[in-house]
């Protein structure tokens, strides 16, 4: 992990065909700072879910500039992803985290992305200013990374 804070940024049109590129960006940076494969997979998926939500919901058809920013901030303690759009926003209080037992029993569709983000990352927060900027901030602490590294090295030696 870096001694001083580092930041990486990607600005990209808000389109589903860019999700692959976003995942590539996220996973390369996560790999660079030393996360293991399993954690890289979690970070990549959480970011994909956040960006897919923006692409699906943030912009109405009439808006021309449908851009999406993905920023990664890294310090000695944590890996932070901030996904920003300039669309219509939403009320974070309206987000329902599904109870998975109930969800599966009722064979519901959709809403899994937010559950995954909350489960895969250590923190998920929203900053909503409709039409100005809307942000989803997700954090993964390095302490978890180190503990998973130990598990990996034990497995490697077996």
């Amino acid at each position: 992990m870096p001694k001083v804070e580092q930041e990486y940024q990607l600005r990209i049109p808000s389109q589903t065909d860019n999700l692959e590129l976003i995942r590539g960006f996220i996973s390369k940076v996560a790999e660079k700072v030393g996360f293991n494969e399993a954690d890289i997979g979690k970070i990549e998926l959480a970011c994909d879910e956040a960006c897919a939500n923006v692409i699906k919901h943030a912009y109405s058809a009439f808006i021309k500039d449908k851009s999406l920013d993905v920023a990664i901030k890294i310090n000695y303690q944590k890996f932070t992803i901030v996904v920003t759009d300039h669309g219509k926003g939403f009320d974070p209080a309206s987000i329902k985290i599904p109870d998975m037992k109930e969800y599966l029993a009722e064979l519901k569709v959709g809403g899994l992305g937010i559950y995954l983000m909350k489960t895969l990352m250590d923190e998920v927060d929203y900053l909503i200013e409709p039409g100005v900027r809307n942000q989803v901030k997700m954090v993964k602490y390095f302490i978890n990374k180190n503990s998973s590294k130990v598990v990996k090295s034990e497995k490697d030696h077996s």
Partner: peptide, 16 residues
């Protein structure tokens, strides 16, 4: 090689 909730949702949409 990769699946997100959009992929999982497809199965949920048809299983019933």
């Amino acid at each position: 090689t990769y699946i997100s909730s959009a992929g999982l949702g497809v199965f949920m949409g048809f299983i019933e």
